[in-house]
Design a protein around this nucleic acid. Structure first.
Length: 520
RNA sequence: GCCCCCAUCGUCUAGUGGACCAGGACUCAGGCCUUUCAAGCCUGCAACAGGGGUUCGAAUCCCCUUGGGGGUACCA
C-alpha cells in the first residue's frame, strides 16, 4: 500500500476507503447465474478490501415469483466461490431479519411518513383501467406510464372509492418540476427530469412493498454505504434518489455495474445456457460447478471482467485481489464473458495443483462416473499414478473420466468398435497387427515392467521393425485405452500391469485381424 | 416512440494530453519440442467507430453522427 506522507501528491483517503457495508440482494426467483455471482463478487471484494461487512439480503417481495429452490442454490453458489457473508438470513445480524417478506411491518410503518408528508398517496385504479390507459397512450404514440390520475383526488372522490371497497395501492408522489440528479461513482452525474418518474407503486394492494420502496428502506436501516448493482437499475435510480430525499435520508454511494452480454455480444446474457456457432455456453453457477470448473478460476476470471487486477498479469490470488480492488476503477462498459479464457484459466489452476490436491478434487465426479465409492477411489493406487499423467491435459475436472476410465476397466470392457483406429499412421491393417504381435513379445519378457524399461524396449522394437516410433505405438495405445488419444503410453502400461496389458493386446489383435479379413 | 447508459485488437483489458506508428491476455495461424493428445517455448495476424472542434500536441477533453446496450409493471 502506498502511504507516502509528506509529499504533495499523497493520496488522501476518502470515504470509499473506509469500512463499507455492502449488500448483495438477490430475489429468490431462480438459480444463481454468473452475472449475479459477479455482482456478489464485487460487493464482497469491496467489503473485504475496506474491512467492512458483506451482507446477504433476500428480496422476495414478489411472492408469486418465489422459487423454493432458489435460496439454497444461491447460498451454495456464494459459498462455493468463497464469498462469505457477515450478516444474512441464515446467520442473522444487527439488522435482522434479512428477508424482506419478514420485514413487512417496517415498510408499513415507514410508508406512513411519506403518506403524512404528501410524498405518497393512494391510487384506486384497477388493472384493467391501467391497461386501457397504456393502450390509449401507445395508440397515440405518447410515452407510456401512469398518468397520475389519482394523485389529486378530492376527499370526496377518495371517500367514494373507499366506500366502494376498491382495493388501492400507494404510489410515490414524484416532484412535478425540476431535475433529479443521481450520482454514480463510475458514471458521474445522471440527470433526468424529476417528473419523468411517473409515480410508481410503493406498496401493492396486498400490502407488500415493491422492490423500489423496500430497497430504499432497507438500505437506509441496514446502514448500507455502497450499492453495487447491475446497469439495468440505472433507470430506477432517480426514483430511489427521490425516495431518499423524501425521507430526508442520505443515499448510499451508487455504482451501476456493466451488464454482462451474451457470448455473441448481443444483448444481456441469458439465464440459460446459450449456443453460439455450435458451442454451448453455460450461464448458471451450478452448471459451472457440475462441469468441473474450479472456484479459483471462476473467481480470477470474474474479477477481471469489469475490473482489472494488473495489465501485465492474468493470474492472482484472492488475497491479492482484495488488496488491490478499488471500486473507483470499475469499468462501466458492458462486456461479453471471454469463455475461452476461462477454460485456459481453469487449466492453469489445475496445473498448479499438487498430485494429492488434484486427486481429491477429481475424486467426487470421477467416482460417480466410474461407478465407484469416492473413498475407495481416493485410496486406489491407480488414481494417484494417473494424476500426474493427465494434469496438463485437463481443462475441466469433469473431463477426468475420459482420460482415465480405461485404467479401471477390464480387458473385455474395452471394445474396438472401429478397429481401423488400431492402425498406425502410414501403416495398413496387416502391418499394425504385425506390430502388435511384435510388441506383445516384448511385453511378455521385459523386466522390470516399468515405464522406463518399456520405453527402451519399444524404441528398440520400432527400429527392429523399421517403423517410426509414433505409428508403431498407435496400435498399443488404442488397444489399451480404446482411444487414439490417451495419457502417455508407457506409464499407462505400467499402471495396467503385464497381465491386463497382454489381454488387451490379444483382444485388439483379434479385432484387427477380423477387420483385415473383412476388408479383403 | 420516449428516457438513460456505453464506445481501444474477434473477446477480456492497459492507457486519465506528450513516454503509444497503442501494451498484456485469450482465441487463431506458423514453428520448436514430441509415443497420441496436451503442456511448454518462440514468432506472427489483429484495435483507438466516423466527423467536427479545443490544444504546440489527442485513444485520452468538448460537440454531433453512427453503432451497441438498458429501462419504460401492483417483476426484481
Amino acid at each position: 500500500m502506498d502511504t507516502q506522507m509528506g509529499t504533495h501528491v499523497e493520496k488522501h483517503a476518502d470515504k470509499h476507503d473506509a469500512p463499507a457495508r455492502v449488500r448483495f440482494a438477490p430475489s429468490p426467483t431462480g438459480y444463481l447465474h454468473l452475472g449475479g455471482l459477479r455482482t456478489a463478487l464485487f460487493d464482497w471484494l469491496h467489503a473485504r478490501h475496506t474491512g467492512g461487512q458483506f451482507i446477504l439480503r433476500i428480496e422476495d417481495t414478489d411472492q408469486s415469483r418465489y422459487n423454493p429452490d432458489s435460496l439454497a442454490d444461491l447460498m451454495r453458489g456464494l459459498r462455493w466461490l468463497g464469498l462469505d457473508w457477515d450478516e444474512g438470513p441464515d446467520i442473522g445480524g444487527p439488522h435482522a431479519p434479512y428477508v424482506q417478506s419478514e420485514r413487512k411491518a417496517l415498510y408499513t410503518e415507514q410508508i406512513q411518513t411519506l403518506l403524512a408528508s404528501g410524498h405518497a398517496y393512494r391510487c384506486y385504479a384497477t388493472a384493467e383501467e391501467l391497461t386501457a390507459m397504456r393502450e390509449a397512450q401507445r395508440a397515440q404514440g405518447k410515452p407510456q406510464g401512469y398518468d397520475r390520475r389519482h394523485r389529486f383526488l378530492s376527499d370526496a372522490e377518495r371517500a367514494a372509492f373507499e366506500a366502494e371497497g376498491r382495493p388501492s395501492v400507494i404510489r410515490f408522489a414524484a416532484p412535478l418540476e425540476g431535475k433529479t440528479v443521481v450520482n454514480d461513482l463510475i458514471r458521474g452525474e445522471i440527470t433526468v427530469e424529476s417528473n419523468s418518474v411517473l409515480d410508481p407503486v410503493l406498496v401493492k394492494s396486498d400490502g407488500m412493498p415493491t422492490y423500489h420502496f423496500a430497497v430504499v428502506v432497507d438500505d437506509h436501516f441496514m446502514e448500507i454505504t455502497h450499492v453495487l448493482r447491475g446497469e439495468e437499475w440505472i433507470s430506477s435510480a432517480p426514483l430511489h434518489q427521490q425516495i431518499f430525499d423524501a425521507f430526508g435520508w442520505e443515499i448510499p454511494t451508487l455504482i451501476h455495474l456493466p451488464v454482462i452480454l451474451d457470448p455473441s455480444g448481443k444483448g444481456k446474457m441469458s439465464k440459460r445456457k446459450t449456443v453460439v456457432a455450435g458451442k454451448e455456453y453455460l450461464a448458471l453457477v451450478h452448471e459451472f460447478i457440475e462441469a468441473g470448473y474450479l472456484p479459483e478460476a471462476i473467481f480470477n476470471f470474474l474479477t477481471n471482467v469489469g475490473w482489472n487486477f494488473d495489465p501485465e498479469r492474468e493470474i492472482f490470488t484472492r488475497e491479492e485481489a482484495i488488496e488491490r480492488f478499488d471500486i473507483r476503477d470499475i469499468n462501466p462498459t458492458a462486456a461479453a464473458l471471454p469463455y475461452p479464457k476461462l477454460e485456459w484459466l481453469n487449466g492453469m489452476y489445475i496445473r498448479e495443483m499438487t498430485d494429492d490436491e488434484l486427486a481429491t478434487r477429481l475424486a467426487p465426479s470421477l467416482a460417480r462416473e466410474l461407478g465407484m465409492r469416492e473413498a475407495a477411489l481416493r485410496e486406489d493406487a491407480r488414481l494417484l499414478k494417473l494424476v500426474p499423467l493427465i494434469r496438463e491435459r485437463l481443462k475441466l475436472l469433469a473431463d477426468g473420466g475420459e482420460w482415465v476410465d480405461w485404467a479401471f476397466k477390464t480387458a473385455d470392457e474395452i471394445n474396438y468398435a472401429d478397429p481401423s483406429l488400431l492402425i498406425g499412421k502410414g501403416l495398413d491393417a496387416a502391418q499394425s497387427a504385425a506390430a502388435l504381435a511384435h510388441g506383445r513379445a516384448i511385453l511378455e519378457k521385459v523386466e522390470p515392467f516399468t515405464a522406463d524399461a518399456l520405453q527402451a524396449a519399444f524404441r528398440a522394437g520400432a527400429e527392429e521393425m523399421g517403423l517410426k516410433v509414433g505409428p508403431y505405438l498407435t496400435p498399443f495405445r488404442v488397444a489399451i485405452a480404446g482411444r487414439t488419444v490417451s495419457p502417455p503410453l508407457f506409464e499407462s502400461l505400467e499402471i495396467l500391469g503385464r497381465t491386463e496389458t497382454l489381454a488387451r493386446i490379444d483382444n485388439a489383435h483379434t479385432a484387427l485381424l477380423d477387420y483385415a479379413a473383412a476388408q479383403a
